[in-house]
Amino acid sequence: MFNYIPIVGQYGIENIRQFGKAGMLLFRSVFRIPHFRKGLPLVIQQVYAEGFLSLLIILVSSLFIGMVLALQGYHTLSKFGAAQQLGPLVALSVTRELGPVVTAILFAGRAGSAVTAEIALMKATEQLSSMEMMAVDPLQRVIAPRFWGGFISNPLLTMIFNVTAVYGAYLVGVQWLGLESGVFWSNMQSAVEFRADVCNGLIKSLVFGAMVAWIAVHQGYRAKPTSAGIASATTRTVVHSALAVLGLDFVLTTMMIGGW
């Protein structure tokens, strides 16, 4: 029985140590005076690699999520004779919750895992070490642009997600199920507030973007330089990101609803 106590303690200490290392990594790579002439092209490259290349999965999933939401919503709302409230239902659930959360999780799966694998492989093949020996700081050259790329891409993707999901709901609700288009849009417009709903959703997506990007670069940088190490680092990126996003979402929602 007493043998287990040190194991639990060791596990706890190890986790806290990893957390500290991740914080150090973030601090050393991000909290620096930025070097725009060299840094900006690198960040733009990463916005392309992480953001633009994730567009397809975001567009397709958001369209389908919007359509399914409209179908389910219409089915239930019409039981109460409230089918004209479909617009607000979809728009509110997407901008407040589904948009930021689903985008962040998809983003972790598509871009976060790729970032982790790339950094870990660069480490395993001594590309990071050789960069250090060429007097180029890999934290500035490799880690920081990938972090900023994720930080910038995720909110942009969330906006696109929101728009496409609402459009998907419009396709199903208005074009297919025959809701009055004016009712659909005007009810949505009067129910959704820009500041409280759309902006709060985007604030969430900023936080999630930073979180996912942070987890991805940390897991890549600390990965064991072996094939198994890279595989488990990539898996950890997706799992940790999903958990962090869902946990943070609860906290942020509480804060926003509670009016902190």
Partner: peptide, 23 residues
Amino acid sequence: SSSELYRLRKKMGLLFQSGGLFT
């Protein structure tokens, strides 16, 4: 310090066993 170390490293070249080329 790390900036002095980076300055010193400009005077050094290291050929890694694996090469360490950017792929």
